[in-house]
């Protein structure tokens, strides 16, 4: 059923801390590794050793240069994956009933046996969270590692999404946003966690924590910033040397 549930018991999702992420892509790689051998069809790579390789990934890490009005630019790494939206437009547009949002925990999934590969759900998603697999021709997306988080056959500490388990910087957290006392809810409240593209009215479950403001970066760096060569006018011995060198120059 591609109508959305009015209410889900849990709202499972991720918190991604942009202050901590170092852009190592380990989450993306571990996601690819786990999900290529788990739920549904493998995440294919096409022409992996050719001139024009491409492949399906459920998690991609962008890097942005952010330049404040004053002070130096910052480099911010930005993992992008499915946000398991409450009002998921990818689900309602699906004509075959392959896409659905689970009532029990809010996870958005694709029943790959029903998917006809029309790609409309990928068009409906503003976040680029869905990719049509080049080899199998069905839509692939983040499952929130539904085959890990409820899996009694793996140690308890592993029962979180693969990206969260892998992140060496602890920039990714998994939890229930319906519970205001959960770690992720508290983190979002304390750090001002935000939605991506709220104007799309998708009500994303996943939240992003903003980079903390730089307290002294602008002024502290300015002291050490190298002045441009032509503005240097040394005096004394250095001044004499400078003039002597200018003759040769």
């Amino acid at each position: 059923m591609t109508t959305l549930p009015h209410h889900t018991e849990k709202k499972l999702g991720l918190v991604i801390d942009l202050d901590i992420c170092v852009g190592c892509h380990a989450c993306a790689v571990s996601c690819k590794e786990w999900n290529t051998g788990a739920y549904g069809a493998p995440l294919s790579d096409l022409h992996a050793y050719g001139a024009d390789p491409s492949g399906t990934w459920l998690n991609r890490v962008h890097s942005y240069e952010v330049k404040p009005k004053e002070g130096p630019a910052q480099l911010i790494h930005f993992p992008r994956s499915c946000l398991h939206c409450e009002d998921a437009p990818c689900v309602t547009v699906c004509p075959t009933g392959a896409s659905y949002k689970r009532t029990e925990d809010g996870i958005v999934l694709v029943d790959e046996d029903k998917c006809m590969g029309c790609g409309l759900c990928a068009w409906a998603c503003p976040y680029g969270a869905r990719e049509l697999d080049g080899a199998v021709g069905v839509m692939k997306k983040c499952t929130l590692c539904v085959d890990r988080i409820y899996n009694d056959n793996i140690p308890e500490e592993d029962r979180v999404p693969s990206c969260v388990r892998t992140c060496p910087a602890n920039a990714r957290h998994f939890g229930d946003f319906a519970d205001p006392e959960s770690d992720v809810s508290i983190m979002v409240a304390k750090r001002g966690g935000y939605d991506l593209m709220p104007e799309q009215k998708t009500k994303p479950v996943n939240k992003y924590l903003p980079p903390r403001p730089k307290t002294q970066g602008a002024t502290a760096n300015a002291e050490y910033a190298m002045p441009a060569a032509e503005t240097v006018q040394p005096g004394g011995l250095l001044g004499w040397l400078d003039k002597a060198l200018a003759v040769i120059d």
Partner: peptide
């Protein structure tokens, strides 16, 4: 959501070749 800090410019894409 980074626009609140300043102007945002994509610095490095997540992948080396075009994807789906």
């Amino acid at each position: 959501g980074l626009g609140r800090i300043g102007s945002v410019r994509p610095f490095e894409p997540p992948n080396t070749s075009p994807n789906y």
